[in-house]
Nucleic acid binder design. Sequence first.
DNA 1: GTCTATAGAATGATAGAC
DNA 2: GTCTATCATTCTATAGAC
Lengths: 216, 216
Amino acid sequence: MGAQRSALPDLVDDSPALWDEGFGKAARGLLTGGVRCFAAQGFHATTTRDITAAAGLSPAALYVHFSSKEEVLFEITRTGHKSSLDVLTLVPPDTDPATHLRGLVAAFVSWHARHHVAARVSQYELGALTSEHYEVIVGLRRRSTSVFHDALTHGITAGAFPDADAHRVVRAILSLGVDLVRWYRLDGADSPEELGEYYADLALGMVAAAASRRAR
Amino acid sequence: MGAQRSALPDLVDDSPALWDEGFGKAARGLLTGGVRCFAAQGFHATTTRDITAAAGLSPAALYVHFSSKEEVLFEITRTGHKSSLDVLTLVPPDTDPATHLRGLVAAFVSWHARHHVAARVSQYELGALTSEHYEVIVGLRRRSTSVFHDALTHGITAGAFPDADAHRVVRAILSLGVDLVRWYRLDGADSPEELGEYYADLALGMVAAAASRRAR
DNA sequence: GTCTATAGAATGATAGAC
DNA sequence: GTCTATCATTCTATAGAC
């Protein structure tokens, strides 16, 4: 590696891989190696030799499957954001807006906890993407944000939630999910599902508190 | 710079500099240049030439004032964490635990908003520090966490707050403050103080929601 | 303390054999 | 599709003049 050994603790990652069969075996190995290197050291401190070594290949093998180191990062962040969005769209609608919002928060948070290593790369390394690739990721992020925003405004319109500032509350809810990749460990106290349920409660508490402020 | 142009939007930074008079004029210029480069591109994508050019100096000038690029980062993160901790310790005690916790959250959040560029470096670039320097930062972080933890447990013991899980709630509150450096802009809708007040309400809502869960 | 010049090492990506 | 070898560049840090 180019940089000195990272001061951060090692990241354990036994989450299921996100890559589908569209990538061959070698490409999937490079993506998995890339995720672990990028998460531990960051994109710019990771060399192409780090990635290929993690995949058990020679330095030149990377360019058979990807056009550049940046393209490895792009595929990782695109796959991660797509997976996170898919999990949201699979949350069943519910006649009770509070139950629906709880389900969305629990799904978003538990996904980020289970895939915290890949999520760390997806969230923190976007600055290394080209402008074109960055715009693709921004599009996926907008769709995730909209899912939360729609659920919250629907509940407000239906009278199930008090009149909260949807934009600010959605941003705060997303912060809970995103920031956990900074500290979450799979061997810690909470399973991804437990943390998801816990944060779903906290999110509903924020909705109530934001409403009481506006009513002031 | 070593990397291509960042895909992220430019970061506007008109916050007051954090460096005291212990640093000379040239050293302060290098720290300010380092903050902006590290925030925009990350530590490893920033070259020593980027930093010295931002300070209007030659590449060799950096090593007159700092022993390495990493030491520039260390001084930035140390000063940032110290300033953030100082703001917390200056929050006046209050006989009402809820008022005290509100004040702590408002101070923590508004500091991170006002100094969001320096805070971004302090929060996201710690992996580039040496182990020794990293431990110094961890010590400062523990002290900040303890301030929140003590305020919350004191309120629970005094009966002002219901019986919440202090560790988890403190982590969630810190996430609100830390994650805003990922999206906050000084030219946006909320001033640092407005955002601080708003998030203080959200934090108290989380305390209430966490308590109701435990009582279930 | 500031500069110009450069040493010494590492990096992203490519050439060409098998 | 994988490899070894290497090119061309870039980077951190230092040497030494002023």
